[in-house]
């Protein structure tokens, strides 16, 4: 089981990193989601892998560590919320600039060249 979990985490991380390095915002968000899946499984593994055990001390010979489960729960909630936020920001950026490139090209008239004094903090 250790090998399976390790391969899963490795694959998810590799896919996540590759997608995060893409130029369009949608693959980047997918990549961030993959990374958060990888880290969630990794957090689980930090309490050692045990099968068919209750997370209660004294319920059997061994027990499943309950703390990583609590940590994963927190991490899932946070990454879920963060994904929602970055999604909204990507959509906002797409609607405002008309494309979903992540990089800020110097030729782009939108940045570094704003003349409007009110909004010109560029």
């Amino acid at each position: 089981m250790e090998a399976l979990v390790a391969i899963t985490i490795g694959t998810l991380t590799a896919v996540g990193l590759y997608l995060t390095l893409r130029l369009r915002s949608f693959p980047v968000i997918l990549g961030l989601t993959m990374l958060s899946y990888a880290v969630n499984v990794f957090l689980f593994a930090s309490g050692r892998l045990v099968q068919n055990q209750a997370p209660i001390i004294g319920s059997g010979e061994t027990y499943a560590d309950p703390l990583p489960q609590a940590l994963v729960l927190t991490a899932i909630v946070i990454s879920f919320g963060m994904t929602a936020v970055i999604m909204i920001m990507a959509i906002g950026g797409f609607l405002e600039s008309g494309h979903d490139r992540v990089n800020m090209a110097a030729s782009d008239p939108a940045d570094a060249d704003q003349d409007d004094a009110e909004e010109g903090w560029a």
Binding site: V39, F42, I86, M89, A90, G92, E96, S97, V102, D111
Partner: peptide
């Protein structure tokens, strides 16, 4: 608001989400 700000914000968020994943690892 503003287009440049929204896209700089996207980079900022993406960078920090990677940082958060690293923190969890």
């Amino acid at each position: 608001g503003g287009s440049a700000r929204a896209r700089a914000g996207l980079q900022y968020v993406a960078f920090n989400l990677i940082g958060s994943s690293l923190f969890l690892f």
